[in-house]
Design a protein around this nucleic acid. Sequence first.
DNA 1: CATGAATGAGGGTTCATTCAT
DNA 2: GATGAATGAACCCTCATTCAT
Lengths: 194, 194, 194, 194
Amino acid sequence: MAKRTGEKYEAIIDAAIRVIAEYGYHQAQVSKIAREAKVADGTIYLYFENKDDVLISLFNEKMGAFITDVETTLADGTSAVDQLRELIRLHFEYLEGNRQLAIVTQIELRQSNPEVRKQIGLILKKYLNVIDQVIQRGIAQGVFHDEFDPRTARHMIFGTIDETVTTWIMKDCKYSLTDQVEPIARLFLRGIGR
Amino acid sequence: MAKRTGEKYEAIIDAAIRVIAEYGYHQAQVSKIAREAKVADGTIYLYFENKDDVLISLFNEKMGAFITDVETTLADGTSAVDQLRELIRLHFEYLEGNRQLAIVTQIELRQSNPEVRKQIGLILKKYLNVIDQVIQRGIAQGVFHDEFDPRTARHMIFGTIDETVTTWIMKDCKYSLTDQVEPIARLFLRGIGR
Amino acid sequence: MAKRTGEKYEAIIDAAIRVIAEYGYHQAQVSKIAREAKVADGTIYLYFENKDDVLISLFNEKMGAFITDVETTLADGTSAVDQLRELIRLHFEYLEGNRQLAIVTQIELRQSNPEVRKQIGLILKKYLNVIDQVIQRGIAQGVFHDEFDPRTARHMIFGTIDETVTTWIMKDCKYSLTDQVEPIARLFLRGIGR
Amino acid sequence: MAKRTGEKYEAIIDAAIRVIAEYGYHQAQVSKIAREAKVADGTIYLYFENKDDVLISLFNEKMGAFITDVETTLADGTSAVDQLRELIRLHFEYLEGNRQLAIVTQIELRQSNPEVRKQIGLILKKYLNVIDQVIQRGIAQGVFHDEFDPRTARHMIFGTIDETVTTWIMKDCKYSLTDQVEPIARLFLRGIGR
DNA sequence: CATGAATGAGGGTTCATTCAT
DNA sequence: GATGAATGAACCCTCATTCAT
């Protein structure tokens, strides 16, 4: 039933990002999103099942595209160390270049209802898999320690990136995120211990 | 106006934890919390300003107490390396021993409205300060590198712990959290690079 | 959850009858019924599950009470012929004395959704049973023919009464309904044939 | 504006009957009828003023044709008793042979809005007139009593037929309707009294 | 102090109808 | 004539909060 493609499909998603970023999740009514997208309220239901579907599609279109991007960019034969650095850079660059999207995905969508969060979790899983592959490759290449549980490393990498971006947004994006790529990568590799 | 103390004050907070943990944030109505606490709906407003105040107080009472606990436990003159290990252990032990609270603070309260999340952020700030102090002490003691930005390290430590706990809850607390204290501490200290 | 009793319960049902009779089923919004009952919209949901429940309860309270009334009035040992006459009289008297209710049950509630109509059908079944009993008693007493199917007679009795009342309402209740008790009873007993 | 004739005009009416019979009045959206008729939504508005017009036309085409049929069939010089029997038989045969139509006219269209029901009433009036003529002829022929009000007899005849058909549909058309022609006719003529 | 009945604002969604192509 | 994408008005229900008892 829902079309899930076309000019208005994208207009609605983009409008949703702007509205949620500006007014917050709880003040992002369907009618407000429709007005921002310059369509009628009912038009949204020609392209999406319901409001939840708008939010899930938003995340899927924007973060899903990013994740695919990361997957392909890391596909070549560089070292895991470079891949790790590249992963962080891509993540930071993408969100730094899409600040409204960053606000929506890092802050606002986390307030959404269980169904939306569940779907977002499924999409994120692909990203976590990418991280896992980098870690495994690093171990195989002998550039990462093989003593730790790869999941522990994944928690560190994703948790740190996530926390860094969230803090950056809470500080109103006042500083450069990409400047932190190198320090974070080095921290991951060398740890804080001397 | 709000009493903020007494037997029923605590009963309401404990009821809120149980209700939110069982039914989720969006199904935790004031009347349900009141019923669980065996008080009338209106009684809640004798002890709390409003529903938000219940949630903020909940976080403040439970996590605030924990944070104070961490502050005092780390106060003695041990090395920063041990303090770091101790911090992780306290964090994991506390939540592993309070699984309902873990669900509420890690998952459910993050869906709350901006005001609640803002207050939670303020309370968490004290915890972040404790982490900062451990880092600075480690640098001063010469056991941590001095080249990285302490905030970067803080993001790593808090982000990793947070992500680890969240994953543990999402996996239905099926494995031991405290078993991971040592691996994570070692990862922080030595990094993943060889 | 729903209280289903009390002063406001009745006020809401009575308001629903007035509103539906005046504005018609499709213009009888919950808020209009609430206003007429001098309660808040939400109060309706303290006494009823939902809007359908208001309509079903309306029918149950008013027609259910009437049907019980008929059952007890006919309980004594009079002849089936008198019982038949009494049944028609009670039916006509009740609706002639409650014209708004007559409009609601005869005309407006028949536009309601399947769930409401199904429940109404179940309540009406008791009335059809009363008619059946009168017929069977008449056959047993030897005052009614025993050659016809009792269900056929029931269709005649109920169908005729129903059509008579509906026509009376459609003609704006301009003539006396009770005046027709005797002619109809005689028609039932003697038929139109000479 | 509306064409009111042509291949698609009939296709839409027939589709409406099928859709309403299958899904019920409240689930018979214009778009569903259009799909069933294999035309575009907008095409319906080339042949009908609006949705109400589809329903009224449906009743008019199908029941109007039937009524005309009854009028002509009864036109010859048979006795009123035979005419009465013939009327019932035609009514039952027509609906027994058009079960979907029976469902639509007996059950579903009665849920429609006031305007539609008003128009249906006007069409039905012709049928009631036919009944009236049979009654008057019977009185004139001396085969019917002359003491009762002809309208009372009409209520009996139409009410009974209507109730009989409705019950038959509610019982899923499981038994023969035409089998009941003779018993009902006899009941009309002789009454239930001994 | 405690109660719990009452309040009433606010929003996602459906679907008959239109009109540019 | 035919299409079908777009429109936008309309409504039931929830639940945090109040206040008379």
